[in-house]
Design a protein around this nucleic acid. Structure first.
Lengths: 343, 343
DNA sequence: ATTAGCACTCCTCTTAAGTGAGTGCTAACA
DNA sequence: TGTTAGCACTCACTTAAGAGGAGTGCTAAT
């Protein structure tokens, strides 16, 4: 168990290092407000804290730097809700008040504002498209052999896919097919929709429409690699300002990582609920060894769920980010509760 | 007018500098194949070439580096079609042979392969969506107050937009509206479609459908900021490997530039036709001062036009890139001629 | 017209010394 | 017994000086 004094010192060190990015020395700590004991005492305590694994040195005669364990402890026990200025809260709320119908735009703006306020990078994950319910299915023929299949979901998302039609597939075939599918599959989730296309629906279709298999196959062929929720970025280049990313190699790894949507999905998916913090190696990814990710999820109407992630260096202003994230995610949830349109 | 020897020397300097990224000295040149004269002679010629503005020195006693004017001359007069290996040609063609229906995927793959082969960054601009012809217009109601408007174009592109319906707007109103619009506006370009929505169509609608203005307005409201062609990237982080981008500031400027689609549109739009090269400051953009852009356009069936841009340092392997770009753009044109589906 | 020779420039790498922030330990102190 | 002052020591960082080397421009010889 840590003594009060140790807690106090750990807190000061983290707070100081977060803003200065420089190892913190005993003298410097002693001058901080609320510190009543001498540098020598602090040195002793720091030695203990280091032994316990909360602090590290960059070299034998440097000041101390929080270790991952140190950050973890700080985040778990020392985090105090921080006051953010009214101006900032207003800035966030202003997005919601501008009555923009398009969810997508709200999301984009949110990502931008968050990265502006935090100076870190924001990733916004839309809800898992696969969970949306199918509202309407449609096929629009283009030429003799090609057509577009369109699926509209209950919250306004539109999926579309090009099809090749088998030779001799007539407009009335299309109509029959569309009718059957709408009749049977409206209201199921996109995920189920695709499943049932291959099984039940296909069986029925075969009886009524010639060459239905070919169309269904064409319809399914592209699906696998695609989607889950959409990904939006804010302040992608912000990390270039952080001193820890003066190393081009790290920058490259991170950038590459962010290009791969599938990886982003898994890395930045929110934990259960509320605000979650993953520090450095807790992210289980080489490129993220010096990064922390703070995620929060928000609701989009009926059980849909999106999430916001802020990526910064492990030396990150956790307090501030957590507070901002809470304000933002609550705001988003509220907005999407009202006009339940989704994205 | 430059003498043959000067041409030869300029060519060697550019070629050498392109691969080594180091200023080229007279001794080094003299050892090159085909060079029969001594370093001293070369020094004299180099002094002349510098006076003419084709070469520069990084400091008084360094070797020479091509100036922008030097590159320009090289590109205009000294470029020789370069042999690229069969393997590479095959690699390009392999994309086209995999029978993927989705245009989008072909484009993505193309961007990736190009950036892999060149080690530079690729930007692929889809054709201007505004020119697509409207094939079908549709409104799918979601809840009482919201609906999705969908526009399918002749080449399979699907635009969609959320609408708020005015109170009391009934399904039959929707049907009437959709019918009128489909009747009058099928076959016009998206651009015209939006224009006519505000004028002719609106006039007719007013007569038949109550509160039509509100719907139209909602339909148009989001349009302005959106689209032109879509943008695809390949090898975004490739430039981090180039020695000229060890400067984080330059990296940041370029990355920021590439995030802004509208700027990308204008910077990387192709010139008239064929392969176009813009060197350094010819790009008229601060972030691109040390970059060259090579663009080529390709055809997507009926007069639609996409374009490929490769961005690299001014010290770029122009010959190779030009050849690769030609192979690729011709390949793309051919593919899209066949299955005219567009994106 | 070409080229060998040479003095000169300037970048780059290495070494050495000086500075300063910070530590750990010991001994004195309350 | 917990706290603190003092002091020797460590190590990164900066600056200066020197050596080496690649390359140039000019001059004079071929």
């Amino acid at each position: 168990m840590l003594t009060n004094r140790q807690l106090q010192i750990l807190q000061v060190i983290v707070d100081d290092f977060v803003t200065s990015a420089q190892p913190v020395g005993s003298r410097q700590i002693s001058k901080k407000e609320g510190i009543t004991f001498s540098p020598a005492t602090i040195r002793n305590e720091m030695a203990d804290l280091e032994e316990l694994g909360f602090l590290e040195k960059t070299h034998t005669s440097s000041g101390r730097v929080p270790s991952e364990k140190g950050y973890r402890f700080y985040v778990d026990h020392l985090l105090q809700p921080q006051i953010i200025t009214n101006g900032e809260v207003e800035q966030i709320h202003s997005i919601f008040e501008r009555q923009m119908l398009e969810t997508e735009q709200v999301i984009r703006e949110s990502a931008n504002i968050l990265s502006e306020l935090t100076t870190y990078t924001t990733i916004l994950l839309g809800p898992d498209v696969q969970k949306h319910k199918v509202k309407k299915f449609q096929i629009v023929p283009l030429t003799g052999q090609t057509a577009v299949a369109i699926i509209v979901t209950d919250n306004g998302h539109v999926e579309n896919r090009l099809l090749t039609l088998p030779p001799g597939f007539s407009p009335s075939d299309i109509e029959k097919m569309v009718n059957i599918l709408n009749e049977r599959l409206t209201g199921v989730s996109l995920h189920e929709f695709h499943l049932k296309l291959e099984t039940e629906a296909l069986a029925v279709l075969k009886q009524h429409v010639h060459a239905a298999e070919a169309v269904i196959e064409s319809l399914l062929s592209v699906n696998n690699q695609q989607s889950e929720g959409k990904v939006y970025y804010g302040g992608k280049t912000n990390m270039l300002n952080q001193p820890e990313f003066h190393d081009l190699n790290k920058v490259r790894m991170l950038m590459d990582l962010m290009e791969k949507e599938s990886q982003v999905q898994s890395l930045f998916a929110p934990g259960k609920s509320g605000v979650q913090i993953r520090i450095g190696s807790e992210n289980n990814h080489l490129a993220m060894e010096n990064c922390s990710v703070i995620t929060a999820s928000f609701l989009l109407g009926n059980e849909q769920q999106g999430s916001i992630a802020i990526i910064g260096p492990t030396r990150m202003d956790y307090q501030r980010v957590v507070t901002l994230l809470e304000v933002m995610s609550q705001g988003l949830s509220r907005v999407f509760m009202k006009n339940n349109d989704g994205l």
